[in-house]
């Protein structure tokens, strides 16, 4: 059986997503990229390619013909609606197309027409104004997964690069809410999902998890805060009793250097920036966002819509290229 192609969503059409898709296709040979198609408005992509002098031919097609088209042109599975798209200025009128592209991506991967979903960045505020009720991209994917399978899915965000994989246990909440939100249950549940996907998708037989502390020096025996000993350490004990190779809590400032990184397959950070600071410092351009806990593989570049440079051709496709490569590797 020939491998199925990857589905790439359009993302916010006024952001850098569409031009990144064009650039990634151009780089397909040098980067050895697997066949992928974009779920988008083909006229918009054609116009954008011309505007940016990218000489990328666009071909409208169905998923089952993507593999034969991919060497010749960027395959586009068309949306039913045209997009307005003005680079740098998101238009609420495009919100239905943005949402439809994600829906179609999930449908195609659930039906087996695509091997994985790679998503381009979206912008929250135009979607919110259009009545989109989900707090973020990832939550929406969880809901779509449940619609298809009838099984509750708890998506877990992982930031991945060749040299570091890190999962924030709490994500998009104020830092002041983190100490209260951080419970043993939350840590244990998150770790279980990480372990399952490390085994099933990353093909790591016995994954090693390292957990960061919440406080400086991981609390220094309780003198610098109680949570490390009272919440994180018991969660680690619990995981170990289930047979999970989990260790810590480690001081976060010495958990990410090259020597330390050889001792674990994924690190669990307790809050957003504790995960994002090391991954951005180690792999600024090439880090990828992977969603664990879903019935399908989903990756995305770890940057936003970059409205300030959208439509200028200055955007760097490195993270999207890595996201495409990882999606292929995980869905093999």
């Amino acid at each position: 059986m020939t491998p199925r192609p990857l589905a790439l969503t359009m993302g916010e059409p006024s952001g850098i997503g569409p031009e990144l898709a064009l650039m990634a296709w151009k780089a397909r040979q040098g980067q050895g990229l697997p066949p992928f198609f974009v779920i988008a408005d083909p006229d918009h992509l054609t116009a954008l390619a011309e505007k940016l002098n990218l000489s990328v031919p666009v071909v409208v097609t169905e998923p089952d013909r993507v593999n034969e088209m991919f060497p010749l042109a960027l395959p586009v599975v068309p949306l039913d609606m045209a997009v307005v798209a003005s680079p740098g200025t998101p238009n609420v009128a495009d919100a239905p197309a943005v949402i439809e592209s994600i829906r179609r991506g999930v449908s195609l991967v659930q039906s087996g027409a695509a091997s994985a979903v790679v998503t381009n960045p979206i912008s929250k505020s135009p979607l919110l104004r259009a009545g989109f009720p989900h707090p973020g991209h990832t939550d929406f994917l969880g809901v779509l997964a449940e619609e298809h399978t009838g099984v509750f899915a708890r998506p877990v965000m992982m930031l991945w690069s060749e040299s570091l994989a890190v999962v924030p246990v709490t994500v998009h909440i104020p830092l002041a809410e983190v100490p209260a939100k951080l419970t043993q249950d939350l840590i244990v549940e998150t770790a279980r999902i990480v372990v399952r996907d490390l085994v099933q998708r990353f093909r790591i037989q016995h994954p090693r998890l390292a957990l960061a502390g919440l406080n400086p020096h991981a609390g220094e025996d309780g003198t610098l805060g109680p949570e490390d000993a009272a919440v994180i350490a018991p969660a680690i004990e619990h995981l170990r009793s289930e047979g999970v190779d989990a260790t810590g809590p480690y001081p976060a400032d010495t958990l990410f250097h090259a020597g330390a990184r050889t001792r674990y397959d994924a690190a669990l950070a307790m809050y957003h920036d504790q995960a994002l600071i090391p991954i951005k410092t180690i792999a600024f351009d090439s880090a990828v966002n992977v969603t664990l806990g879903l019935p399908f593989v989903r990756t995305s570049p770890d940057h936003g819509t970059a409205f300030d440079i959208a439509g200028t051709g200055k955007a760097n496709p490195a993270s999207l290229i890595e996201a495409l490569k990882l999606a292929e590797r995980l869905s093999r």
Partner: peptide, 27 residues
């Protein structure tokens, strides 16, 4: 805070003020 240190390391600033210990120490 995930990119402020990269800006400084690139030479745009002489100093970064962090809000808390690990925020500065990790990078």
């Amino acid at each position: 805070s995930d990119t402020v240190y990269l800006k400084a390391f690139a030479g745009h600033y002489d100093s970064v003020l962090a809000m808390y210990h690990d925020q500065g120490q990790i990078a």
